[in-house]
Amino acid sequence: MSRTGWDDYDWQLIHDEPQSPVLHMALDEVLMDEAAAGRRAPALRFWEWASSCVVIGRFQSLRNEVDPEGARRHGIEVVRRISGGGAMFNEPGNTITYSVYAPEAIVEGLSFQESYAFMDGWVIEALNDLGIEAWYQPLNDITSPGGKIGGAAQVRRRGAVLHHAMLAYNINADRMTEVLRIGKEKLSDKGTTSAAKRVDPLYSQTGLSREAIVSSMIATFRERHGLVDDAVHRREMDKALDLAESKFTTREWTAIVP
């Protein structure tokens, strides 16, 4: 297998109405599998969130990451995604989340580290176009002089790659620290002890609306790689609803690493 380029594919855009956290988790798994099976063209999906949540990584310990009391108090759902990486606190309107589903050939021959930067090349360009001095910080962070903007994660299976990322648009730092347990060890090499200080969200950097930033990102992708408007297909949605129910709402999955 030799490496393909962005231009070898007819990219589809999915940007649907707000959906629940568990449905987003399920859609990522279904759309990656549909791309792997060749039933869906490579796609870029922007997420809209219907409710607040903490999304923990596939290999994170539920009790080490989340304060259940704080989550309950603020009515925040806890979901586990299929990719590795760290916990993200998300409130509707405060984050920009997207996924790219593609054949694994697009990252063939790249190291993991190279593949992360490669898959987010259009994002760095979009942010630069908005006047934000952003760059890729290995292993999986998008960062800027003022602090981290976001983080990415990948899953590869059956010949497909899922690359998804969450960028901070705005941040409720007090609530975040009541819901997430921020480990001391993790901060030891980051030079600051405040979780809130580590992030410099896009709103404070640009003053732009979230919608304006999302539109600009879509425009950059469209210019760079081509993009045709699409939506989640009926079959895909049926599968995702089933999977949300049978997997992502279950304690077995959410507490798979207790």
């Binding site: 290999f59 080490n64 590795g84 990486g85 480990g183 060890e185 993790k186």
Partner: peptide, 30 residues
């Protein structure tokens, strides 16, 4: 240059037991 790795375990009869490794790293397959 990598991610956080967490180990939770007990020692029973001089051996590691109930070992659970976790963290924000990446593994394929999961």
């Amino acid at each position: 240059g990598g991610k956080l790795i967490v180990a939770d375990l007990v020692v029973r009869d001089g051996r590691l037991a109930g070992v659970s490794i976790s963290g924000d790293f990446f593994l394929e397959p999961d």
